[in-house]
Write a protein that binds this DNA or RNA. Structure first.
Lengths: 191, 191
DNA sequence: GTCTATATGAAGATAGAC
DNA sequence: GTCTATCTTCATATAGAC
């Protein structure tokens, strides 16, 4: 069992290093040499843990999804009403402002990169977005069951994605704040 | 002069081929071999016209900007009031729906890809967005001079970018249409 | 201005000794 | 489970004959 734990630990080490690398460099510019350097795992060894770069990506996405689920579970407990939960979701843009203006949304920017040619990889990334999408839809169902909750959900995703893209182009944190406030007022009007 | 025309013609041929390639594959996956193949210009010759891949990108962006300016000039004549002009801008999402769900917004997706590491290239692409931004701002100044026209401009960009990103993730043309209608109603309310 | 041949480097991936 | 050496492929880019 000790050996298996070690393997699992090294895998985690690789996945966490790749998570950052992926966000900061993107998939196509990130190399196995980069992963080796950042994770402190010798280049040759990486192939013992992951046969291909695609496999590492899938593991990173799984890891991110787990983290997202944990976060959403906490929010579900922390906020008793769906309106506050949705506002907390919007506030990611404030909390992560620095990163967003530099690297964009981790999900959106990766999809943009992979969506063009690497369509299998893109669907791997889509799974990440789906976690948010389902959670948001659930909140809208609680908040306004008579409305078109699918449309509301997509609208919220549209505006948060747009905020990330445009604020990243113009490196504009003020825009992020401005749009977030506006979006929260929209949430207040949904009934 | 004939020789110079030939050079210019070949350059154009390369730029137009790269324009499509860039949109369909993205910058990092697009190679000089691809450009040679699509443009029908022998691989070795490319370096006679452009010393680096970055130079080709700059030429493509210049070419796109020229096309955008021509389009905007036509709209300025075709539509007498700024509200209709802005609605025409939004309608790009309908006209280009097929391409957008497959490849995203040509500007947004390229920025997402280049924004992470290749910051000089990113600013090349930003010039493209600025052409739209300035034109949109001018329309809002005509439409609602008392409003915060910068905020209105960015809001429109945010929502059109978001539409592209999310509809591309979910390959959802209906979303594109739905959000466009909603956005045009928003334009109607701006005074 | 055109084309072939090639230099050079880095990428993903594998083999096999330890 | 670790590490080195290496294979293969493909990229950008250059040299130089025509």
């Amino acid at each position: 069992m000790a050996a298996r734990d070690k393997t699992e630990q090294t895998r985690q080490q690789i996945v966490e290093a790749t998570d950052n690398l992926l966000y900061h460099k993107g998939f196509n510019l990130m190399s196995f040499s980069d992963i080796a350097e950042v994770s402190k795992v010798p280049r040759g060894n990486l192939y013992y843990y992951f046969k291909t770069k695609d496999e590492v990506l899938a593991a990173v996405v799984d890891h991110r999804i787990q983290q997202m689920r944990t976060m959403l579970d906490i929010w579900d407990v922390e906020f008793t009403n769906p309106r506050d939960r949705l506002k907390r979701f919007i506030d990611i843009s404030s909390v992560e402002a620095e990163n967003i203006v530099r690297y964009g949304c981790p999900i959106g920017s990766l999809t943009a990169e992979l969506g063009k040619q690497q369509i299998e990889l893109k669907s791997t990334v889509k799974r990440q977005m789906d976690v948010f999408k389902r959670w948001i839809k659930k909140q809208f169902q609680l908040l306004a069951p008579d409305q078109d909750v699918d449309a509301l959900t997509l609208h919220l995703l549209v505006r948060t994605q747009g905020m990330s893209t445009v604020s990243s182009i113009y490196k504009d944190k003020k825009l992020l704040k401005q749009e977030a406030e506006q979006l929260k007022r929209w949430i207040d009007r949904v009934t």
